[in-house]
Design a protein around this nucleic acid. Sequence first.
DNA 1: GTTTATCGTATTTTT
DNA 2: TACGATAAAC
Length: 727
Amino acid sequence: MLINKKNQVSKDWLDTLNPEQKDAVKTTEGPLLVLSGAGTGKTRVLTSRIAFILERNLSKPWEVLAVTFTNRAAKEMQQRVGKIVGPVAESIWIGTFHSIANRILRKHPKLVGLDNDFTILDQDDQLRLLKQLIEDDGYNLNNFTPKVLMSWIQFCKDKGLEPENVPFEMMGELSNCNVIDLYSKYQDKLKSLNCVDFGDLLLHCLNIFRDNEEILRKYQSKFKYILVDEYQDTNVCQYLWLRLISQMYRNLCCVGDDDQSIYSWRGAEVENILRFENDYDNSKVIRLERNYRSTPNILYAASNLISYNKDRLGKNLTAAYYDKQDKGDKITLRGVWDSEQEAHWVVSEVDSLHSKGNLLSSIAVLVRAGYQTLEFEEKFISSSIPYRVFGGPRFYERLEIKDIIAYLRCVCSDKDDLAFERIINKPKRGIGDSTLKKIRSNSKAYQTSLIQSARDLVETDELRSQTKNNLNILLSFFSEWRESLDILNPADLVKKIIEDTGYVEILKKDSSQESQGRVENLAEFSRTLEGWDTIKSFLDHVSLVMENEVSLSNDFVTIMTLHSAKGSEFDNVFLPGWEEDVFPHRRSLDESRVGALEEERRLAYVGLTRARNKVFISYAANRRIYNQWQSNLPSRFLSELPNEILDIITETGIVLGGKKHVSKLETSYINQNRNNDNNLDLSVGIRIFHQKFGYGKIISIDNNKLSINFEKAGNKKVLSSFVELPP
DNA sequence: GTTTATCGTATTTTT
DNA sequence: TACGATAAAC
């Protein structure tokens, strides 16, 4: 029960919601789908809804389950609910799909053949394990890489399929390499090591629900209200999981936006959201279409673009904060000669925004792929504008940190073979492949863990005395550390391990800035550990929360991929690289899947709708990718933006071709080396040939840049190295 | 067992 | 170009 004063506050938050939001908050009973467009306040709805449920005393806090995809989202929700309802928010089940599944799985590990203290593997470990299996069993991969097989297994898990349930069609091209068998062996191996991978967290949890009626009932009756964020990103496994767990009370509220589904390649199925009304009888759908973020112009552009997609539920976003007169600034569209100029232009615009009083933190550069960040970084550095690239290797993923974590894992558990393998020769101590192979075969023969089998081997004369010695030193360190487990706190133990192994010494010898950073990271790591009582609880945390918590004190420009931009917003957004083959990405065009291009378009939609006030889009006629110069046509998405809200500045001679889509043939590109000056005798009036644009006559020459009137493609500017004389 | 050379390959990555 | 994975050389 909440006291009066709180009620006062609560009343306030309810009153400031718009009618649709209020409806979504108050419709607590029955299945509810909230279609919430970008910037329509979905987090607000979710948090208010939880607060409403608690305030009306419809359930206890621990009977509410709220799932998200990212830790960031979970944390934000927890905090915002806490602001309304106070400390009781702590006992609400708020978390990512994986962390909730983990929490449940920890209670019943035996049911899926695991021990209480199972380890969660990351991608590295998963792959290492799989490679080992492939090697041990002499698999014929038919030219498929272990990575491909791994992602296939992951794909099955996303679909909620155990090896024995995988249908033949799912195997696709891999049907001739025994993948199902491999999948099955992989699962066995995981179990024998008492490990799970990320997919398993959900899959095991789902299987527990499927196979154990009483336990399923228990959770079904526990969670009276269930809320799901970003429903469009759920995969089949998550979908089935939600179906089961919500079956009793059926108070399932899913919030999502089909237009922002950009993770199909990770197993997400837009169909889940498209099907909601069919899946749940007597369900209600509420649309949130009032956008509190962007100007009318930006919304108009975004809506126009996304309208080219079929198979949408359809939404009309209207700008809440603007009146009919003020539509906001137009979208700036800039065409440039090459990617270097593009970066130059972006940085100069950033500079001018900054000098007009905009904080750098109000500015973001959103790119399609990681490699595009480089050129911007260089320009930002030379202009001494602070920036930060998001999505680089995260803190706990750094090599040195993973090494130390592996040490900790070994200390905690004798059985952690993968961790042991990782550090057995790190830092180098003269224990290489052949020794490891001996240990492995020994462990296989006697069914012991690697560490135990190493201990056994040291007692024999199987190893050379040098290696034997080295291994012995390591093993005695292990027992020493294990003894101090109860005496030292985690942070001190880490310091001891770092010292004993000489890890830092080695890094310090190498005076590159990189190892400098590594030393600092290690120091940072032991500081992080100071807040933890036991190493085990810390390790569990690490595997689920990979985020790098950096202090965000300074003002800087954000550079990130469009994918990681989902969920954030900025006053000023730069969207560079809008060219065919870059965005939409070449791979999505190659794919025969029709949906691939639509997903690219949704990505463009996500990009546009990140912006509050200003959008700057640019494209370059030439771009260096892997040191190859590529000339590209403007993205088809540009022609899907309404012309009247564009402010076009072009200097490439490449003019937008109206609504006409660029054909596949035209986009097929050629790679040529720019430096490969072909010393042609070029002069005005000469007829030349260009691989992409065909035949044309030279109009003018500016150093290596030529203006050419092409017979089919019209006037273009091209590099001289791209043209050849007709045969 | 460690270092060096060569080859191949290159989206997006919430956990 | 740059990184990783494998192969040959030290």
